[in-house]
Every structure is written in C-alpha cells, then in structure tokens.
C-alpha cells in the first residue's frame, strides 16, 4: 500500500515540474518559474530522502529542514512579487523561515530530528500570506488567481495536518488512516497545477 502511495506521490509531483519546464520553455513567466522551482524542490526532496532511506538508512530530516526553508522563501518571494507595493516590513518576512530554521535546528531540536515547528510555521505563514492576497484580490493578476486559490486551500489543509504530525510519527495506525486523505490533497494540487499549465487557455 505504501508503495502505491509513494508511486502516486512521486509521479504526481513530477507532473507539475515537467509541465512547468515545458511552459517556461514556451513562454517565460516569473511567477510560474517560482512555482516550478517550488514543485522541483518538493520532488527532489521526496526522491532524495526516499532513496537515501531505502539504500543507506540515513537520517533524512536535514533534507526536510532545508527543503521547508527553501519552499518558504520561494513562496514568500512569490507573495512579495504579486504584492507589488511591498513595503520594507513585508520584505522582512523572509527572515521568518530563516529564524525558525535556525531556532529549530540549533535550540529547540536538531537538524537530525523532525521539523515539526518549521512545518507548522511554514504552513501557517503561507496560508496567511495567501489569505491576504485573496483579501486584496484586485491586486492579483487574473491569470494567477486560480493558483493563489489552490495554494491557499492546500496550505490551509496542510497547516491543520501539520498540527498533528507528532501523533502520526508515534502512531503508524493513525498515519495509515489520515495520510491517504492528505495525499489526496497533494495529488489534487499537483494535478490541478499541471492541468492549469497544460490548459489550452494558457497556450
């Protein structure tokens, strides 16, 4: 069962990356470039950690720590680039994932342990940022609206999921029930984004 989940996860994560590269090859778009980078980071992290775990039984948490940091910075960059009148204060948002990364790896936990805090903060922060974009919806370019909406819904659900991640790590039975549902959301986002880039409207 886990193999099927992983298969779906990897394949669905690969789709947006491929679609993103094809799209960018045809027509350059800065926002799509950022989002493609975000999907690429996720895909590489999941692939590398899976291979390392299977082949070498190494700790994969350093990859998760770094991955969540990069994902956070990319999506904050995405937010700042959409929010054209970004003030100096808004630009200091970049510091949040960096500070959380340093705090979690140096003080609260270790780079070789779980990244619960950064995962929760990342999801919460991105949900709030995307929510502010939806509130100031007129500022968002029309073509980016579906992506902002999809990312907002995904990160909101992901935030709720991240609150219970500690339970999943100690209770595999709970994980086995909840993870497929969460995987559905991941698959939906990946397929939605792929479809969005493949859609004839964009071409």
């Amino acid at each position: 069962m886990v193999t099927i989940y992983l298969f779906f996860l990897f394949v669905s994560e690969l789709f947006p990356v491929v679609a993103g590269f094809i799209f960018l090859n045809k027509k350059y778009d800065f926002h799509i470039q950022l989002l493609t980078a975000w999907f690429l980071v996720r895909f590489l992290t999941d692939t590398i950690t899976y291979l390392l775990k299977i082949n070498f039984e190494l700790s994969v948490f350093p990859f998760y720590h770094v991955s969540i940091l990069i994902e956070g910075v990319i999506l904050i960059y995405f937010f700042v680039s959409i929010n054209k009148n970004s003030t100096y204060i808004i630009k200091t948002l970049y510091l949040i994932p960096i500070i959380i990364f340093l705090m979690e790896t140096l003080f609260f936990s270790s780079i070789f342990q779980t990244n619960n805090l950064s995962f929760i903060v990342y999801n919460c922060l991105i949900s709030i940022l995307l929510l502010t974009l939806l509130i100031k919806i007129n500022k968002v370019d029309y073509y980016l609206l579906p992506i902002v909406k999809a990312f907002f819904v995904y990160h909101s659900v992901s935030f709720f999921y991240s609150l219970f991640e500690t339970f999943f790590r100690i209770n595999s039975e709970l994980m086995a029930i909840v993870y497929p549902v969460f995987l559905l959301f991941i698959l939906s986002l990946n397929l939605f984004y792929t479809f969005y880039l493949w859609s004839p409207r964009k071409n």
């Binding site: 819904v153 709720f160 999921y161 029930i177």
Partner: peptide
Amino acid sequence: TQELAVLIITGMLFTFFLGFGIILFAQKN
C-alpha cells in the same frame, strides 16, 4: 486511534471547505 483519525480528517475537510468559502467570499468581493 480511529476516533482521532476521523477527527483529524474532519478537521482537514472543514479547513478545505472553509478555504473554499473564503475564496468564494473573496471572489464576490
């Protein structure tokens, strides 16, 4: 465990629909 799973899944679904509600509201605005 089952009850907790149902609770979490319900919470996730609730968040999902809440997100949709916010989107609809934003669109209307």
